[in-house]
Design a protein around this nucleic acid. Structure first.
Lengths: 186, 186
DNA sequence: CTTGACAAACCGTCCAGACGGTATCTTTAT
DNA sequence: ATAAAGATACCGTCTGGACGGTTTGTCAAG
């Protein structure tokens, strides 16, 4: 125990571990449980070690946000690759990813975190930027009111999953997905 | 300064003031700024005074939640009163209220708060209960997949307002409202 | 004179971050 | 090839402040 000092150094591994632990903590005990002490301890690192990787708490949350967005982007890109209709392609990918999120193993882990992130003004701004960027990138194919509507609905469903406020059976779920995808085409 | 002691006693007024201040603080500086010290001070009351009205912090947040839901309910009821088509009536009211929320003077004040409330497990559960209750109450008229979809979209728009992530001009806004209301009818 | 509506001082805990150190890794000079 | 010279990756401790909550006291109204 005493000499975690002497173990092999693996900065990238530790960094990743810290992010994972932070995500897990927020999931299991709410964002309030994400303290430097708790995260570092659960990651098997001292607080000093944590602060070496992330100079302050906001940096840690930023790191979490980066990871989150990166996964989201990857999932969207993947979904877009299997779709050869131009019109509304981004919207359909967005739909797919949002609706699938609650099922995905890791998705579950990120959700509670997400809402907390969005309460933080700084991260809220970063998210706004993400949206603006995508809106510009896919203006040609996905700026119609119908696409917008579909994406809003996806957000609503995502929110419902997050809050566990509605119990959606797989059947209505896929019905909604169908309906929304249709919207993205017309 | 010293003699806030001697001012006229007006418990109901003070209680209200505390709630308003808490809402305003959360709006302007995030939920992190809602501390007993900050709220009481900004409301011109001592911390002891605050804790007289709300025995602990959770009670304060609960009070906030009650207020929020009460206003929401009143607005919905009002909107339903002016609608004499049975089918989807609740959904249309829900739409109207959600989409109008960002315009309303006080609505603005409650939004940031809301998301923070939903991060709190206890309040999240209370919200879940609200949803379940309404779902049961309006099962006859508003349980179709289309109504569900419309409400999800409303949630998405509400979320976008909250995060200021999309800039919706009044035109598309009313277009979406129209479209969604139509959905609630078919 | 009792009760409700506050005030003011205080307490224990938690937490972000600073700091000074130590061990391991990498590069460079020889 | 190797040893010195940093650079990087950590550890352990400390501190100052914030925060939720308690306690005790004070005033006013009924």
């Amino acid at each position: 125990m005493s000499n975690a000092y002497h173990r092999k150094k693996q900065p990238e591994r530790v960094r990743q571990q810290l992010l994972e632990v932070a995500a897990r903590l927020s999931l299991e005990q709410g964002i309030g449980a994400v303290t430097l002490d708790a995260v570092s301890q659960a990651a098997g690192v001292s607080k000093g070690g944590l602060l070496h990787h992330f100079p302050n708490k906001l940096a840690l949350l930023d790191g979490l946000f980066d990871e989150l967005v990166a996964r989201f982007d990857r999932a969207i890109e993947e979904a877009m690759a299997g779709d050869n209709v131009e019109r509304g392609r981004f919207t359909r990918a967005y739909l797919t990813v949002c609706l699938a999120l609650e099922a995905k193993a890791d998705g579950k882990g990120w959700q509670v975190l997400t809402i907390a992130l969005l309460a933080e003004p700084h991260l809220k701004a970063r998210w706004r930027e993400w949206v603006a960027q995508r809106a510009a990138e896919f203006a040609e194919t996905d700026s119609s009111a119908n696409c917008l509507l579909a994406r809003f609905a996806a957000d609503g469903i995502w929110l419902a999953d997050l809050l566990e406020s509605h119990e959606l059976d797989a059947q209505t779920r896929s019905f909604l997905l169908q309906k929304l995808k249709a919207l993205s085409l017309q």
